[in-house]
């Protein structure tokens, strides 16, 4: 029984991280039809931001989180303003441009922070295990889970309960009509992209103490997040949440049965087969045509 509980807890923590990454990806894709291949590198940038803030200013992981959000969000904002906004008419080319941005970020980190692995300290009070419902669990894992839920709720409120979210949804439905009503589409796009990037940054910050921080760490996360988006679709937050949970748990369970690689391969094959079976049902084809 204990083994199953810990299994679920591991799966939940994988799912929480995935959720944060996929949430940003799905919001960006849902709103502007851009697949952001630099998303993994935003995750990486988040992890490096924590490392840098910790080394330079001796900050605690938790106090760095707002700064990480602002730093990575700022980079995302710049990327949208400088490049991506020129490519809304050519959806396939946004993939290339964002891949280019990813390369530049990765190489810039390699040149300025070094290619060697970096390590981030976990906050002292989260290292010890805690007892919950009679089980022992890592406090840090619970922290990740709680923060992911909090950010999910915040995102929900942002989209469905604020003026900004209203404008964002309006643009998603029909950009031209929304603009006629005086909504500044460019500004909303830039802020949406920045918000998605910021979420990826937070995810990067959260994984930084669990795994070593390296310039190419983003790739593996972003691939999983893509699978989440492909499986869950971008129409609803619920789809993203559900498929993060499914993929996170599948990853966790399969990894415990065999190993990480086989788990990834099986999950990938599963998603490809599911696409064939439910081409319309699991995700909506919304390639932007102008």
């Amino acid at each position: 029984m204990n083994a199953i509980a810990s299994q679920i807890s591991v799966g939940l923590s994988i799912a929480s991280i995935l959720l944060l990454i996929a949430l940003g990806l799905a919001i960006i894709y849902g709103t502007m039809g851009v697949i952001n291949l630099a998303h993994g590198d935003f995750v990486m940038l988040g992890a490096y931001s924590v490392w840098f803030l910790q080394k330079q200013f001796g900050m605690n992981l938790i106090t760095t989180l707002p700064f990480v959000f602002l730093i990575v969000g700022g980079v995302g904002w710049l990327a949208e303003r400088l490049l991506i906004r020129h490519l809304y008419q050519r959806p396939l080319d946004t993939i290339l441009a964002t891949w280019g941005i990813g390369v530049i970020l990765q190489q810039a980190i390699r040149l300025f922070a070094g290619a060697e692995l970096r390590y981030v300290k976990m906050p002292q009070f989260l290292i010890n295990p805690v007892h919950i419902f009679g089980y022992e669990d890592s406090a840090y894992r619970i922290f990740i889970f709680a923060l992911a839920i909090a950010l999910l709720v915040a995102t929900y409120l942002l989209i469905y309960r604020t003026e900004f979210g209203l404008r964002m949804r309006a643009i998603t439905q029909n950009r031209d009509v929304s603009r006629c009503f005086g909504i500044n589409a460019g500004r909303i796009y830039a802020l949406t992209f920045a918000y998605g990037a910021g979420l990826a940054g937070i995810a990067g910050a959260l994984v930084s103490p669990l795994k070593s921080v390296a310039p190419d760490m983003g790739t593996s996360y972003v691939v999983d997040a893509f699978l989440v988006v492909v499986l869950g679709g971008v129409q609803s937050l619920l789809g993203t949440v559900a498929s993060s949970y499914v993929i996170g748990q599948a990853d966790g369970v399969l990894a415990s049965l065999s190993d990480d690689t086989i788990a990834k391969a099986v999950v990938f094959l599963g998603v490809v087969v599911l696409i064939r079976l439910f081409p319309q049902g699991l995700f909506a084809m919304r390639v932007r045509r102008s």
Binding site: W99, G100, I104
Partner: peptide
């Protein structure tokens, strides 16, 4: 890095 910029 240069290739990434050229690409964009």
């Amino acid at each position: 890095l240069i290739m990434g910029a050229l690409f964009i």
